[in-house]
C-alpha cells in the first residue's frame, strides 16, 4: 500500500467540470501547467471563442481558406479519419444541425422538419478542405461549420497527461466532465478503477473497468438532452442521415482506448452507429474496446473486456461479432 498522497484539482472549463488527480512530487506544478494547457487548447479549438482556429474557419466558410496551427491541422486530420472510418456517424461538420437542436433544447420543442433538412444540407465532413502544405482549412459553403465538441475534451485529456509526464508524474488521472484518461497505474501498480455512470440512475454506476494508461469515455442519451411536455426524450447525439437524435436502442456507449481523442470520437460514433454496426466499426480499431448499454439496460462488452468489466448487477453479454 502506497503512502503517496493524491493531489486533486477541480475547476470549470470547456463547458464542463474538469478534475485531475495526481500522485507524486511535483503534482502542484503539474496541475498548474495542465490548467494553462487546457485554457490554451480551448482558445485554439472552441468554435465559440472569437479568434480561435475553429472560429476563424467557420467565419470564413464559403470565402477563403484559413491558416491554422499545425496541431489544429493534426486534430482536424484525425477527426476526418474517424469520420471516414465511421462513415459519418461521427462528423465534425455537424454544427449547423446541433445548433438547431441546442436551441430546441432551450425551448423544449422539436425543430420543424424544414429547418432540420436545411441544416442537414450543410453537414458533410468530406467538404472540409485541409491543405497540409499551405497549412490551411476551408469549408466551401457559407453556413457550414466545424464543431470539435465531440473530440476536444479527448484532445485536452491527452494533452494534460502529456503535461503530467513532462513534469515527471507517473500516476495520474484526468476527468473532463466524465471523459476520463489515466496515466500509468496507481502507486503500487494497481490499475485505476473507472466506474461507468448508470445511464438511468444519476449518482450510480452500472459497472467498473480496470485500466492503466487508457482513456475511458462514455456517450449517453442522458447527457445534454431534453424532454418534451409529452415526455419524449431528445438527446444530443444526432443521426446525420435523419437529422434527429439517434434512436437505435442504445442509451450508453463507453470506449476504452490508448488514445483519448479516439475514445472520445469513437464513443459518439458507436452510439450513433448502433450495436451491430458499432461493433463492426470497433473491430477496425483493434486496440479499442467498448461497453454498449441498450434501453433494457442489457450490457454488451467487446471480447477484450472479458474479465475486466465488473457489472454492478445488470446481465452482461459478450459481443460475438
Amino acid at each position: 500500500m502506497s503512502t503517496q498522497a493524491i493531489r486533486r484539482s477541480v475547476r470549470y472549463g470547456m463547458s464542463t467540470v474538469i478534475t485531475h488527480g495526481v500522485y507524486g512530487t511535483g503534482a502542484e506544478q503539474a496541475l498548474a501547467a495542465a490548467e494553462k494547457e487546457t485554457d490554451r487548447l480551448e482558445r485554439l479549438l472552441s468554435r465559440f471563442l472569437p479568434g480561435s482556429d475553429v472560429w476563424r474557419i467557420n467565419q470564413n466558410a464559403g470565402r477563403e481558406p484559413v491558416s491554422v496551427e499545425s496541431e489544429t491541422m493534426e486534430i482536424l486530420k484525425k477527426a476526418v479519419w474517424l469520420a471516414e472510418l465511421s462513415r459519418g456517424a461521427f462528423d465534425i461538420t455537424i454544427a449547423p444541425l446541433s445548433d438547431i437542436w441546442r436551441a430546441a433544447g432551450q425551448d423544449k420543442a422539436v425543430p420543424d422538419g424544414a429547418a432540420i433538412r436545411r441544416a442537414l444540407s450543410f453537414v458533410d465532413y468530406s467538404n472540409l478542405k485541409l491543405d497540409q502544405h499551405a497549412m490551411t482549412a476551408f469549408l466551401p459553403r457559407a453556413g457550414q461549420a466545424v464543431d470539435l465538441g465531440g473530440i476536444a475534451k479527448g484532445v485536452a485529456a491527452g494533452r494534460v497527461l502529456d503535461v503530467f509526464r513532462a513534469y515527471g508524474v507517473a500516476s495520474a488521472y484526468t476527468d473532463f466532465g466524465g471523459n476520463v484518461a489515466t496515466l500509468g497505474t496507481k502507486p503500487g501498480g494497481a490499475p485505476w478503477t473507472v466506474g461507468i455512470r448508470h445511464p438511468r440512475c444519476e449518482g450510480s454506476i452500472i459497472g467498473t473497468l480496470s485500466v492503466a494508461d487508457r482513456s475511458v469515455v462514455t456517450s449517453g442519451d442522458y447527457q445534454r438532452c431534453f424532454l418534451t411536455p409529452a415526455g419524449q426524450r431528445y438527446h444530443h447525439i444526432l443521426d446525420v442521415k435523419t437529422g434527429y437524435p439517434t434512436d437505435n436502442g442504445l442509451i450508453s456507449v463507453t470506449v476504452i482506448s490508448a488514445c483519448p481523442l479516439t475514445a472520445d470520437a469513437l464513443s459518439t460514433a458507436l452510439f450513433a452507429a448502433g450495436l451491430e454496426k458499432g461493433a463492426r466499426l470497433l473491430k477496425k480499431i483493434p486496440e479499442a474496446h467498448a461497453v454498449f448499454i441498450d434501453t433494457r439496460l442489457n450490457v454488451f462488452i467487446s471480447q477484450g473486456l472479458i474479465g475486466n468489466f465488473q457489472s454492478a448487477g445488470q446481465p452482461v453479454k459478450i459481443l460475438s461479432f
Binding site: V10, R11, Y12, S15, T16, V17, T19, G21, Y173, D175, G177, G178, N179, V180, T182, K186, W192, T193, V194, G195, I196, R197, P199, I205, T208, L209, V216, V217, T218, S219, G220, Q223, R224, S252, T254
Partner: peptide
C-alpha cells in the same frame, strides 16, 4: 471507484 466515466456535469451549479 477512482473516477467515473460519463458522469458529465455541465452546469456550473454542480461545481
Amino acid at each position: 471507484v477512482d473516477v467515473i466515466s460519463g458522469a458529465t456535469v455541465t452546469s456550473k451549479g454542480y461545481l
